[in-house]
Design a binder for these strands. Structure first.
Lengths: 347, 347
DNA sequence: CTGAAAGCGCTAACAA
DNA sequence: TTGTTAGCGCTTTCAG
């Protein structure tokens, strides 16, 4: 690891000059010729700044704290972390990840992250729900991921459930289904109403009737299969929009029992169907993916914009692709929304 | 954040004395009475060391680099990361996580981790396979996770496939299955032979015959369902050990078509069956979990023992539970193995 | 325009 | 037994 001192010696200037140049704070302070020389030797020696040493003076580490509450165990976590990492990496940041299961160790983990000088926090939950931001986080740049700040004071990234419901239903409509069922979830979840709303809207738009009796809410276990079986017999729908893959399973099971082939006799769209379906039913499968990766990605961009209060100037000169502005709005088809303080205020 | 300087001033001693005491390097170097005073004020002021400043002198950061190659997108990643975090947290370390998709950015990510002064690396792959350790990692403490070092020079944590196969088969035997099929995988995978070996061994031990015709290898797509259907008709097994959840699906589908109820008419044991099955088939479900969490956990312990070359003395005095020694062997039922340099040499 | 000097929080020789 | 000093790699006045 070559240091500034080495660059300085090799160029025959002082460390402070090197510091100025390498931080682009020359410009009328260092003679252009010298500056060029410095940059040259820096490049030649492969100089890279030591972020830890720098942070000692600046108290900026370019490290982001990623706190997940129990989510790491779910298959979702990976996507969020991955998205966050990609964004962070692009912007010249690193992710210090930490997991808290209960509330007991949360405070301790946060304290530790602070000691390591993180510039801000990503606070990720299992699935979109109302959340109280822990006090120790209050005066730090912070973005919630897949969670809604109860007080509306912090930015958050959330799935756009209405869009998800709309999209799923639209696909069934486009597949010429005439009778489209919604296999929902009986547990109260934030997602539920949005999905149903999207379902409704898509039907309306297509001039199809909204029929209460095609909507069932099934629990996570127990009589769930029976409920779906009843629906099969009662209404014989040819299209099924399923809240998640567990619900999709009941449809598949019923179809199999009747010798119906999914993708030929009935159409199924599930939200976030996992490996099983993806690997086995490739051709017939239609899945609306929950935007985990994207939530991680956009949350991180937002956080960095909060921290820097401006467009990023790449720390990595070799990155050639121009970055979109930090606050760029999320593409609509991504199925998630950025809720920030302003828009919260407007609601 | 209170600093050593403050503690020193408040106690009326010098910083170096404080440093000695707070690092437990007093003992014959600082008068016990003074040492006590120092500890007292430190506690009173809630002093916590600044690991970044410390690292500037010691070049030890207590940060571990976690490199995952493409795994973060799979549902497995979360478990590994979670296990690694838990272990790290217990031992007073932090995880700096990074993802590489191809090989292009891998070098860059590793370089960045080095700049941040990580003490060692965890190198995680998608699923156990032979791996060439990237050159930049060669002279660092390193543990492979869910991967096998081709040269046998580095420690690694790997699933114990034989044990997994044995365990799965044993459960079917215990459920009084008389004819147990193995639905394997036609792609060549390290896991395959171990699983089959375990299957064999369990049958042998129970005095049951090993019957080639009960073993099928199905591909990931296409004619897979048909292969399983053939097996159903040909042999009517009453027990099924499935390589993974995709394979389990084919069994469920066939069962459903014949009106057979899994858990009553036939028994199924899958490896690493995910949410779908877990949520919908709770009572009938038997799953052998792949030890992702554990691999992350034990890999991290091993890495720290490599770094410190000794038992850990907790950085966090408040942690009361005594930690097991770093090199403690992994409990057998955990289904993974630690391969370290010594044992590799023995093979 | 450039360099010397101080200091971020901490550790480690070396004196006293 | 304790304090002084130097320095890790970097930023940032402040003189020159």
């Amino acid at each position: 690891m070559t240091t500034m001192k080495e660059v300085a010696e090799r160029t025959g200037v002082s460390v402070s000059t090197v510091s100025l140049v390498l931080n682009d704070r020359d410009e009328g302070r260092v003679k252009p010729a010298i500056a060029e020389q410095v940059r040259a030797t820096a490049k030649r020696l492969g100089y890279r700044p030591n972020p830890l040493a720098r942070s000692l003076r600046t108290s900026k580490t370019r490290i982001l704290g990623f706190i997940s509450e129990g989510i790491a165990a779910t298959p979702y976590a990976g996507g969020i972390i991955l998205g966050a990492q990609d964004a962070a990496s692009k912007l010249g940041y690193m992710l210090l990840t930490v997991n808290t299961d209960g509330n007991s160790d949360e405070a301790r983990e946060i304290a530790t992250l602070k000691r390591y000088g993180v510039d801000g926090f990503l606070y990720a939950k299992m699935s979109n729900r109302f959340t109280d931001v822990p006090k120790p986080l209050h005066d730090y740049p912070l973005v919630l991921v897949d969670a809604t700040d109860r007080t509306g004071r912090y930015a958050s990234i959330e799935p756009d459930e209405t869009l998800i419901g709309y999209d799923a239903t639209k696909r069934l409509i486009d597949a010429c289904c005439a009778s489209i069922a919604y296999i929902g979830c009986s547990e109260p979840m934030l997602a539920q109403q949005g999905r149903l709303e999207g379902y409704r809207r898509a039907l309306l738009e297509a001039g199809m009737p909204f029929d209460e009796s095609l909507v069932v809410a099934v629990p996570n276990n127990g009589p769930a299969l029976q409920t779906v079986t009843d629906l099969f017999e009662r209404r014989r729908p040819d299209g099924y929009f399923c809240f998640n893959d567990a619900r999709a399973w009941y449809v598949y099971e019923n179809a199999a029992r009747r010798g119906l082939v999914v993708g030929r006799d009935v159409s199924v769209v599930g939200v976030d169907n996992h490996r099983v379906f993806a690997e086995t039913l490739e051709p017939q499968l239609t899945t609306v993916e929950l935007p985990h990766y994207e939530m991680g990605y956009w949350a991180t961009r937002k956080l960095v914009s909060l921290i820097e209060g401006r467009e990023p100037d790449d720390d990595e000169p070799e990155t050639t692709a121009p970055l979109p502005p930090l606050d760029a709005s999320i593409p609509a088809k991504i199925h998630c929304t950025l809720i920030d303080k302003q828009s919260v205020a407007q609601r």
